[in-house]
Write a protein that binds this DNA or RNA. Structure first.
Lengths: 193, 193
DNA sequence: ATGATAATGAACGCGATGTTCGACATCTTC
DNA sequence: GAAGATGTCGAACATCGCGTTCATTATCAT
């Protein structure tokens, strides 16, 4: 019975989230002021601060949705028959997901602005990967290190994709990503002669 | 004969750079205001803006030094007999370098603040790695992708090291880093039964 | 010594932040 | 449907950091 969330409050929060998101896509996170947000959302200034401590807080709150979506995308993919026991089963789904939300991710990737966004996305991905890598041999390399390694590689692939080869199909980027993460650089460099 | 740099101007720039650096270590980049900088450097406000467009500009200018130091560390290591043709010859030297400048790197790694710093460090490392990977088989995976992959992995190792296992010796972190980057995850995950 | 260049510091305009408060709207509950 | 709680409004305010201006003074190069 904790559903005591006032409809008005919901309206307000939704409007603010939405306003921020669209503004980020337009101008990038840093360039967005609180004033911009409340103007677009048509919400009073004091109301804004009654809900959030600032734009960073508002931004963060929005990522709950992303995390949920990721989790579902992963489950949906899990259910599919192929790639049953394969490691990193999430990756292709993630690249496809990314292809659909190019704009948002672009804005997030734009280094300058979104340190927070990057951190938040990283967090969401880390959860996924950590779960995925549960049955890992801990002896050689710390598990958390491996998790971060995978997430970084994924984000790198993502950035590179959008910045350099946006024409590539998700499956192609995914193939490169998997090749590097699973097999490392060794096989590539072993071409000295 | 272009050595027309006035001593006064040099003094000023040096004082500002130094002030910023020490302040970053103390409070983190974001928390540092222009006022803080000029107070510590004991430099007039207008003078500051006569030299730099803002604190970001000042910060950037400081990275020329870092890039030089990296380049030299790499050359010095190149000269050493062991590891002649080994790939990623720079990594151990870099980790050792990092161990010496813990404070600065800590401040840089602190996600929130230093998007710029991270970008700048990334740039410096990318140059190194790109050079290192010159003779790479381009067919399978785009070279620039590989470069970014390696740099990300390195930075990840760095962050993880400081945040989680600061007691580890540089050589140990380096071993983990090399293992993952060269061999990938495959070998680790291949322990299902 | 002198003309050029750099540094000073106080003052100002600007834009963004976060808070406060009284009036009004909308929900919940009995 | 009346009452009290909760949410919203909007204007006003204090505060902060930024970047610029300008007349004055110090230091440089020659």
């Amino acid at each position: 019975m904790d559903k005591k969330i006032d409809r008005r409050a919901l309206r307000t929060r939704r409007a603010l989230s939405q306003a921020l998101l669209s503004l980020i896509v337009e101008k990038g996170y840093d360039a967005v002021s609180v004033q911009d947000i409340i103007d677009r959302a048509d919400i009073g200034r004091s109301t804004f601060y009654a809900h959030y401590t600032g734009k960073e807080d508002l931004l963060r709150s929005g990522f709950a949705a992303l995390r949920e979506e990721l989790r579902q995308a992963k489950l949906a993919h899990r259910a599919s028959p192929e790639r049953a026991g394969e490691p990193l089963s999430f990756s292709l789904a993630m690249f496809e997901h990314g292809a659909r939300y190019v704009d948002q991710y672009r804005a997030a990737a734009n280094g300058r602005g979104g340190a927070i966004m990057e951190a938040e996305i990283r967090r969401a991905l880390s959860e996924l990967v950590r779960e995925e890598l549960r049955g890992l041999d801990e002896a050689a390399v710390s598990r958390e290190f491996v998790v971060q390694f995978v997430v970084s590689a994924f984000l790198t692939a993502f950035d590179w994709w959008f910045a350099r080869k946006p024409k590539l199909a998700p499956a192609e980027v995914d193939a490169m990503f998997r090749r590097l993460v699973l097999g490392g650089i060794g096989p590539l460099a072993a071409k000295p002669r």
